[in-house]
């Protein structure tokens, strides 16, 4: 049984169909990267997985539990699904340390001191122990995103969803964030929506190419980059490789 199973998800906003039947599975500690043109439903898919958006149809299963079932306590499930946002969404009124510890304190009900010790470990893991007492407004974009990752990690999630984690960053800050993500590969399952082809190629176990609300093709990076079955996939990878310069952000 797969750890995460997404079955035939449909999502529409008004008359606009964004997802038209998406299915895939993920195993423990696996890294999958979703690529595809903008407006193709990649972010919506992530939000449907942890129910920040409710799918119109389809199921999501985590560890044998159907989380799309309305009777499921979604807050309990979200503890096990980390989410890293494109625009960080750090809590503006909390220091970096408290941003990481607040979930432990208020959701997991861990004692403040133990929670903060744990939070400090996670900040160290992303290389930000020195910034623990700073507020989001005092951090650079790259630092904010690393705090965001630490915040997700601290909850000991089964899987972390990354929604274009480097898209809002200045080019020179992207590397630090990608390094942190790379260091997590194989330790926690990651589902990453990104345009960073270097990362996709070097870190992913599998690449999912989405377009027009459906999965067009999926497979191991080597296969996808060198020997994609469909012309559409080859065309997209060729174009985006030229656009984003995969060599520079080699991950």
């Amino acid at each position: 049984m797969a750890m995460l199973e997404v079955k035939d998800i449909y999502k529409a906003y008004g008359n606009v169909e964004v997802l038209k039947g998406v299915s895939f599975t993920m195993e423990k500690e696996e890294t999958k990267v979703i690529i595809g043109p903008s407006g193709t439903g990649k972010s919506t898919l992530l939000r449907c997985i942890n129910q920040l958006s409710l799918p119109n149809k389809g199921q999501v299963w985590l560890d044998g539990e159907e989380i799309t079932n309305p009777k499921t306590n979604i807050n309990k499930i979200r503890e096990k699904i980390g989410f890293v946002f494109q625009d960080f969404n750090l809590f503006n009124h909390l220091t970096a340390l408290r941003n990481v510890s607040i979930g432990l304190e208020k959701v997991k009900r861990i004692e403040k001191e133990a929670a903060q010790t744990r939070a400090m470990q996670e900040l160290t893991r992303v290389g930000l122990e020195a910034q623990a007492s700073q507020y989001p407004a005092q951090l650079s974009g790259g630092q904010k995103q690393r705090v965001g990752i630490a915040r997700a990690l601290a909850m000991d999630p089964d899987v972390i969803l990354f929604d274009e984690p480097t898209s809002a960053l200045d080019p020179e800050l992207i590397g630090d964030v990608l390094d942190v993500m790379k260091s997590l590969a194989g330790k926690v399952a990651m589902l990453v929506v990104t345009h960073e082809m270097g990362f996709a190629r070097n870190v992913a176990d599998e690449i999912i190419f989405m377009e027009g609300g459906v999965i067009v093709e999926q497979g191991p990076p080597k296969e996808m980059f060198t020997n994609a079955k469909l012309a559409r996939t080859r065309e997209f990878l060729g174009r985006i490789g030229a656009l984003y310069g995969e060599e520079e952000t080699g991950g």
């Binding site: 920040l52 979200r78 989410f83 946002f85 969404n89 979930g103 959701v107």
Partner: peptide
């Protein structure tokens, strides 16, 4: 959104 994603109600 971020608070909800952590599992807060």
């Amino acid at each position: 959104t971020a608070a909800r994603s952590l599992g807060m109600n």
